[in-house]
Design a protein around this nucleic acid. Structure first.
Lengths: 207, 207
DNA sequence: CTATAATGCGAGCGATCACTCGCTTTTTCT
DNA sequence: AGAAAAAGCGAGTGATCGCTCGCATTATAG
């Protein structure tokens, strides 16, 4: 009895050039999403732009959804990198400084790739595996909550979960709307004012 | 020369039962969106659920997009009804009371039809005419800004446009995330706490 | 060098879907 | 009652798209 069927079922297994293929596919997907929008992003087109055949595409990604999910994941990991670093850096700082840093990072994170961010926010139907952006959100909440709990003395009496929810919602919304509305051009001055004001609101709320 | 070509080109013209047809189509679209999601929402299915033929559908709606846009519009008009009423009611009230009312209304507005709201937010690609949710947003900003300007004396020195942007972003985000995360069950107590806290944050920020 | 596995290819299948067209039924007008 | 306009119908069309399959090419192992 032959143990291994001649063809491995699907997906993983990357040894040398296949890595490049996978990268090219994810990169091509991101580019098409940004340049042509979600509707024009077909698997055939992705393969074409990646300089790869559709067959190869399906060797590594079981579905179109999986490809888009990979793009989302890559982008979210970049953002989470900034956020994790900021929260580590801020752990020993008082609330005022910490919030200022976090607001700054929130805006920076949204500016990593604004066009992609916009497409992901506005054009990708959050369905099936694409719904899992939530995991990142939970991590952010957990990290912020841990910080707030460690600084309880500087704050008024307040439920940490609730405070986290309100602060994260507010900061995220300001950053998100800023980047989506002002399009690409955001003067340093504007950003500074925005950070100041948002920080003021959040800090005022916490104590 | 025949003036009127025998068949009117498309779209409007409603005299009696055709009104019911149009309503049934919009209603069916909303129901399918909620029950089966955007992906399953095809024009054939809409016509079927509305108890109408595809042909009739295309007499009144030039495209599938137009149908979804009608659903969005209807929902937004309901929301704007609440918001406009609240802002009128609040015009002569001091900031504290006004903000409290506005936060309450923001949550109420998101709870008009939470399931539909979720689908519209998460599954509808904002593309083409669907991108025009922005008009409602602008109206909200204009209304809030007008209120804030009329109450300048109670506030610290602050740019009205910026203040409006931050306050509306924060309030909207809290309401949005509340309704989307807590799913359907929201105790009165939770809502009251949330309103109190958000109000505190915004009022504290404004003065 | 040869055998075997890994990777790559792309024509084309099957299914879906938005939308049209020729026709029937209902309503309105005179 | 008769004519004409309005409303309604639904099988069918053309196009797209996700995905498969049989085969070719390249890399690795013995």
């Amino acid at each position: 009895m032959a143990r291994t069927p001649p063809t491995k079922p699907r997906k993983n297994a990357l040894q040398a050039r296949s890595r490049a293929t996978v990268d090219a596919l994810v990169e091509a997907t991101a580019r098409i999403l940004v340049k042509e929008g979600f509707e024009k992003t077909s698997t055939n087109r992705i393969a074409e732009i990646a300089g790869v055949s559709v067959g190869s595409l399906y060797q590594y990604f079981p579905s179109k959804e999986a490809l888009v999910a990979a793009v989302i994941d890559r982008h979210n990991e970049e953002i989470m990198g900034l956020v994790r670093a900021a929260l580590a850096e801020v752990a020993d700082l008082p609330i005022e400084k910490a919030v200022q840093k976090l607001v700054t990072v929130a805006i920076e994170a949204h500016r990593i790739n604004p066009k992609l961010h916009r497409v992901l926010a506005e054009q990708i139907p959050r369905t099936g595996q694409l719904a899992d952006v939530e995991a990142f959100n939970r991590e952010v909440h957990a990290l912020v909550r841990a910080y707030l709990e460690s600084r309880r003395k500087e704050m008024r009496k307040i439920d940490p979960g609730l405070a986290t929810f309100i602060c994260v919602s507010a900061i995220e919304a300001v950053a998100h709307n800023t980047v989506l509305n002002e399009a690409e051009v955001l003067s340093e001055k504007t950003v500074r004012t925005l950070v100041e004001e948002t920080t003021r609101m959040v800090v005022g709320y916490l104590r």
